[in-house]
Design a protein around this nucleic acid. Structure first.
Length: 577
RNA sequence: CGGGAUGUGGCGCAGCUUGGUAGCGCACCUCGCUUGGGACGAGGGGGUCGCACGUUCAAAUCGUGUCAUCCCGACCA
């Protein structure tokens, strides 16, 4: 490719709306342009990168025995009603009508469609197991798109779905996919961790996420991990706790109600009573699937919303507003504001207590009266009808590993892939069945496996950049090398550059020649910004028969003959895998 | 959804307070000059100032509404 013809426009400055590294870099280097919120044009350089990632994914999926197909982007409402997700999915599902007023949606994922495809063509145990995948654009109408390609509304994803006759078969395929994923991300030049995670709206039991570990702002997930190998997303992580005081008898000799004016926060309450937060029972009001739920937890800990939601089998959770709290209080004959809520007398609504609550004795608790708390209280004395215990606690760095007991560490990660065991979550309601040896029908045992293609590209930038621009891993770089003749008026420089260009092209190296009539500085800046893994500069030293060979990643420079440079590059490209 | 901010050429911004011919830098086109880390000079093209309504002799500027975009929050009572 000739730089003079390449459709790319680099910018002198970063676009003002870009926040994270990958967004800034990709926009400035001319890879992407925003069309509308969360929706981007993939310009030629970007598309080359995306195709490289797609091809790696394709090869490894095919190697792992999966088969590629392509399903529609626009989908009918009916299938989503069959699975029950038409109502459950929420506003992220972009719904629309066609000219006949038929209701459709844009595919945010394809479980419904693939299950229907399988139902249609997968009738016998003899055809199984089978794993089908596609690489498709998806659309999720995110509340708040941000971070460029990392959290867009439209994005490219590889999604695979496996069909088995048994749990054992699913386990096997699950591990097969985990291995394939590991290979895929390695080939893309990405260091990933496979972490346990919540299975969310997709449903199912077991799931893992593949996280690119990054120190940039773009890491959206907290990953807890341990040297022993344990690692989990914060929405799923569990831990053992360090020993702390959970008995308040040292502070309170008897059970009584005390005035605690203006103690709206735990900090204020601790200060007012001169006690540690570990002997306060914190009560929070959540709205799960539009209904109130009370969460009880030791006050030095934080509720993990996803865990709480799962504990009551919900699909949607948020903290209650002060108006909702007031309403709830009124319904139960109380009149208290946040800060003084307690479980006592809250009949008829689910109460979930974190495991930390079990051991608490003689604690402090709200009693649904503003500016008052009960001290020296015990759960058995509170006269509660039914409490459900569950682990609804957010793990913190320093908690102990649930497997080996050592201290957990925390890091930020960008999720680039996930694998789920779905079981019969979709096949059952959608009546997608096969016949076994005895002619009996059973629902498929399914798994699903996703990789964010466009997100992987962005994550790669987050993981590989410097102040000058992108440093693509060679396997996913848009081109392998750029040849920069410093002065295109110089006949010898141009002659050598053109010769190398032809030789490299003929040898299968993806090469760009920067034949623009620009000053050297401009060409170097662009080369760094765009992130070609290698640069060969043909300048004055060509008079001694030498060119400059530079590695973007390390910055290492070497003077070599054009022939040696070509040899190096051909060799490097041959070894990409 | 709550809070904050911003919409002026492809990108980055000024102008708005105090209404009066729409500006600057980068990018783009032409010529000259320059050629190892985003040169320089001269000339040039490109904008219904987000949109609508209103006030006014006159609106980018003032008012109302609306749309869009971005940031923060939506997890501790």
């Amino acid at each position: 490719m000739r730089m003079s013809k390449l459709f790319v426009q680099t910018l002198r400055e970063y676009p003002s709306d870009a926040e994270v590294v990958s967004h800034k870099m990709l926009a400035r280097a001319g890879y992407i342009r925003k069309l509308t919120s969360g929706v981007y044009n993939y310009l030629p350089l970007m598309w080359r990168v995306l195709k490289k990632i797609e091809n790696i994914v394709r090869e490894e999926m095919d190697n792992a025995g999966a088969q590629e197909l392509l399903m529609p982007f626009v989908q009918p409402k009916e299938l989503w009603e069959e699975s029950g997700r038409w109502d459950a999915y929420g506003k992220e599902l972009m719904r629309l009508k066609d000219r006949h007023d038929r209701i459709m949606c844009l595919g945010p994922t394809h479980e419904e469609i693939i299950t229907a495809v399988a139902r249609d063509g997968l009738k016998s145990y003899k055809q199984m197991p089978v794993n089908l995948y596609q690489i498709q654009s998806k659309f999720r109408d995110e509340v708040r798109p941000r971070y460029g390609l990392l959290r867009g509304r439209e994005f490219i994803m590889k999604d695979a779905y496996s069909f088995d006759t048994s749990e054992e078969g699913l386990d096997k395929e699950y591990n097969n996919m985990a291995r394939a994923y590991k290979k895929i991300f390695e080939r893309c030049g990405l260091d990933t961790k496979m972490v346990q995670s919540d299975s969310g709206a997709i449903g199912g039991s077991v799931s893992h996420e593949f996280m690119v570990i990054t120190d940039t702002d773009a890491g959206e997930n907290d990953v807890f991990y341990c040297d022993c190998g344990y690692s989990a997303n914060s929405n799923h992580a569990v831990s053992k706790l360090p020993e702390v005081v959970v008995d308040g008898k040292k502070y309170f000799s008897e059970t009584k109600i005390v005035d605690t004016p203006n103690t709206h926060s735990i900090d204020e309450l601790c200060e007012f009573l001169s006690i540690p937060s570990t002997i306060i029972l914190k009560t929070l009001v959540y709205i799960v699937d539009k209904k109130p739920v009370l969460a009880l937890i030791r006050a030095d800990k934080t509720v993990e919303e996803t865990k709480l939601m799962n504990s009551v089998g919900g699909m949607d959770i948020r903290i209650a507003s002060s108006a909702e709290i007031a309403e709830l209080m009124a319904e139960h004959g109380f009149d208290a504001v946040a800060g003084f809520i307690g479980p006592c007398g809250m009949t008829g609504i689910p109460i979930v207590a974190d495991e930390t609550v079990r051991d608490m004795k003689n604690f402090v608790v709200g009693i649904n009266q503003t500016d008052k708390h009960q001290v020296g209280a015990n759960l058995s004395d509170l006269g509660l009808d039914e409490i459900k215990y569950a682990d609804i606690r957010l793990v913190e760095a320093g908690d102990f590993c649930p497997e080996c007991g050592k201290s957990l560490k925390v890091t930020k990660g960008i999720e680039v892939g996930n694998i789920f065991k779905l079981g019969t979550k979709y096949s059952k309601p959608m009546n997608a069945v096969y016949l076994d040896k005895n002619g009996k029908s059973h629902p498929y045992v399914m798994g699903c496996y996703g990789i964010g293609i466009s997100r992987t590209a962005a994550a790669a930038v987050e993981a590989h950049y410097d102040e000058h621009g992108i440093k693509w891993p060679i396997a996913i770089a848009p081109y392998h090398v750029v040849i920069v003749p410093v002065n295109i008026q110089d006949e010898l420089q141009m002659k050598v550059a053109e010769k190398m260009y032809e030789d490299l092209k003929n040898a299968g190296v993806e090469v760009v020649i920067d034949d623009r009539d620009e000053r050297a500085g401009v060409k170097f800046k662009d080369a760094d910004l765009i992130g070609f893994p290698y640069r060969v500069t043909v300048g004055k030293t060509i008079n001694e028969g030498l060119v400059e060979y530079k590695i973007r990643e390390t910055g290492d420079v070497e003077k070599v003959t054009p022939e040696v440079a070509v040899e190096h590059l051909v060799e490097i490209v041959k070894n990409i895998k």
